[in-house]
Simulated assay, not measured.
Amino acid sequence: MSGAVSRRALLFALGGVGLLAGCGDDHATWHSAGDIPGDSHEGDSASPDVTDSASPLVVPPANKPTAGVCPPPPGVVQKSGGPQYSLPCHGTNIALTVDDGPDPTYTPRMLDLLAQQGIRATFCMIGRSAAAHPDLVKRVLDGGHHIANHTFSHPLNIAKMAAGAVHAEMAKATDAIAKASGGNYRPALFRSPGGAWSSTVLGQCGNLGLRPLDWSVDPRDWSRPGVQHIVTTILTKTHPGSIILEHDGGGNREQTLTALGIVLPRLRDAGYTFAQP
């Protein structure tokens, strides 16, 4: 199968349906659709900073989890061998993923916040940043968090790159993370920059034993849309099985940290349980 497929073609796993163990060879080329949660993120320069000083923060109630019910996002279609967009449905499970670090300014604060809330997340790390900050790689692992491979240099055109270049980005990132961890950890998950997937990217996941991981709730915090936007998006879009996308690297993450300080306790109070993909 070839040609672009809308990012509305999300994976939904319900009940005992197992999540994908790897990547196969029969895949479509998937690109982001900008009108739904989970579209591509291109770095801090893509959008101006938006502050929240113009109006008071309004915190909507979080969606309450319903035991045994994991509603998929609109238009969800499961693709065999494709990226994981949802957790298996156990009624209350959700996941937090944190991209583009580690960052010496924001990753320690993110870790402090998660420790305060008793939440374990999955940090999708850029290899060159992991190599530059091995202390933070170790601290993430010491906190009980998982680390995913997010390429070595975060190329946003990865879906158009040749197989050799894609392989090099993935393999180099895995090696950098493993070395930074002291040789004790090698990622099992891969998140493609911008959520850009192709048959080549997925094929290289399979070649390297990496399981492709995407997301289902994207408040576009990378663009600094304002704390209000981040808070509202997460609390109104999160349902059982959701995988939430946030960032600790790639620019100023003050809004992200402020918003998570609000939404994480509210999600827990609503009855959600944080799990790892």
Score class of each variant (00 low, 15 high):
P104F: 07
Q276V: 11
S129I: 03
G75H: 09
I234G: 03
V217Q: 01
P104N: 07
P277C: 13
R220F: 06
S47Q: 11
V58M: 10
A131H: 07
A62S: 12
H229Y: 02
P240A: 14
G3A: 08
A21P: 04
L267E: 10
L202D: 01
L235N: 05
Y106R: 09
P265T: 03
G144D: 10
I177R: 02
D112Q: 11
P102F: 06
L141V: 08
T29N: 11
P104Q: 13
D39L: 03
A131L: 09
P225C: 15
G182T: 10
D99W: 06
F274Y: 07
D25E: 14
K172E: 15
S53M: 04
R7H: 15
G34A: 13
R224N: 09
T92N: 12
P61Y: 01
I158N: 04
P219W: 11
V98I: 15
A46V: 04
M161F: 00
V231T: 00
G226T: 05
A13W: 00
V69H: 12
Q117Y: 05
R266I: 00
A46R: 06
C70L: 13
A163P: 03
P187Q: 08
Q84H: 06
G22S: 12
M170Q: 08
F190K: 02
T258S: 15
R224W: 00
V76P: 03
G127F: 03
L14H: 15
F123N: 00
G91E: 10
G68A: 15
G127E: 02
T66D: 12
P102E: 05
L96G: 08
D26A: 12
A62P: 08
T107F: 08
G38W: 14
N93Y: 07
L141F: 08
N63F: 08
T51S: 12
P193N: 09
R7K: 15
D35L: 15
G118R: 04
S40C: 09
